[in-house]
Simulated assay, not measured.
Amino acid sequence: MASLMENLVEILDKECTMYEKLLELSTRKTVIIIKGDLEELAKITDEEQCVIGGIQGLEKKRETAMKDIANVLNRDVDSLKLTDLIVVLEKRPEDQKNLAVQRDRLRGVTDNVRRVNGQNQELLLSSLEMVQFEMNIIQASKSAPQTANYSRALDTTGDCLGYTSGGFDAKQ
């Protein structure tokens, strides 16, 4: 059991380190989004994908370690959480402390990653809205006001002042 606990604590430590790298990348991404540097944004997104791949690998190892611990403790794997495991380890205070420290560290860093990613998402949405606004201004500037010319049906003809829709007119 001791080696299983050491293995789990080691995996959680590595997972925390990977999440800290992800947090650092996400924080750098905030500055890049504000600058609007698309090349750097692409690079940092690629780096994030590599880190996320590492986190997913560690997550599988953590699930395997939890499964092994659940089998030793004769508990249901799906219902055994780190918090429950900390309570079970009350007779082993050193393992309990190490596991609690890693759980709290992991919770803190994942909360920070979630917060920074939320900010980045808001910044990206604001950027998209700004681009849409600018595109609307460009489209509006291309359409001139309509004339007051009426057709036989007493509707406006929809003609625009000084605006032609086509290219070269050979008759002129």
Rank of each mutant, 00 (worst) to 15 (best):
M5N: 00
M5L: 15
E6H: 09
E10S: 06
E15L: 07
C16P: 03
C16T: 00
T17F: 03
T17V: 07
M18T: 05
Y19P: 04
Y19A: 04
L22V: 02
L25V: 00
K29Q: 03
I33Y: 02
I34W: 03
G36V: 09
D37H: 05
E39V: 14
L41R: 07
K43W: 02
I44P: 00
I44Y: 01
E47C: 07
E47W: 05
Q49N: 13
C50T: 10
I52K: 09
G57R: 11
L58T: 01
E63H: 10
M66C: 09
M66L: 15
N71Y: 09
V72S: 12
L73D: 02
V77Y: 05
S79M: 10
L82T: 04
L85Q: 03
L85H: 04
I86L: 05
V88M: 08
E90H: 12
E90S: 15
R92N: 11
P93T: 09
P93K: 13
D95M: 10
K97D: 08
K97L: 14
N98D: 06
L99Q: 04
L99N: 01
A100E: 06
R103N: 13
T110E: 02
D111W: 02
N112F: 01
V113S: 04
N117I: 08
Q119P: 00
E122D: 12
L124M: 14
L125I: 12
S127P: 00
E129T: 13
E129H: 15
E134D: 13
I137G: 05
A140V: 02
K142G: 02
N149A: 15
Y150N: 03
S151N: 15
T156M: 03
T156N: 00
T157R: 06
L161T: 12
G162M: 08
Y163I: 12
G166P: 02
D169H: 13
D169E: 11
A170S: 15
A170E: 11
Q172H: 12
